Amino acid sequence: MAYKITSQCISCNLCESVCPTGAIKVEGTRHWIDSELCTNCVGSIHTVPQCKAGCPTCDGCVKETNDYWESWFAKYNRVIGKLTKKQDYWERWFDCYSQKFSEQMQKHQGEILGV
């Protein structure tokens, strides 16, 4: 399974310079990976694919799946992960806001009652 360069690519050419097989191709400003040449860096001195490891955007170079369902579930899990994190964020925000609001109300009531 080869890797592919996504729309997150910033055309920094780091992947091209670190690829041990020369699988990274550039046509104008578009970068792409030749799947015939890409070996995922297996059989080389590298333990991880160098295009992925060297990418400064983290999502500029991703594993390309050939199986439709594998791709579907990968995207589904990414989306669910993002939604879950956002839900946690808003719950924490609400808890913090509620606590601060409650403290201010108690302080304000104390001032009104002269306590």
Rank of each mutant, 00 (worst) to 15 (best):
C61V: 14
W93T: 14
H46W: 11
I45A: 14
C61T: 01
C38P: 06
P49W: 00
W93C: 12
K86Q: 09
C15N: 02
C55F: 03
W90V: 15
C38E: 09
Q106F: 10
P56L: 04
N66L: 10
I80N: 09
G54I: 01
D67S: 04
C19D: 02
H108R: 10
T47E: 13
S102T: 05
M105H: 06
Q87A: 11
T47Y: 15
S11K: 15
I5C: 05
C55M: 03
I5W: 04
R92M: 13
C38W: 00
V48Y: 12
N66K: 08
F101Q: 13
E91W: 01
E16Q: 12
M105W: 03
C58F: 14
C41R: 04
F101R: 13
W72S: 04
S11Y: 06
H46E: 12
F94D: 03
S44K: 10
Q109K: 15
T39E: 01
T39C: 04
E111C: 07
T29G: 01
I5K: 01
S11D: 08
E64Y: 13
K86C: 07
D95L: 06
C38Y: 03
Q8C: 10
G60L: 00
K63C: 11
S44Q: 00
V79Q: 15
Q87T: 03
S17Q: 08
V18D: 02
G54P: 00
T84H: 01
K85C: 01
Y89L: 09
L113R: 08
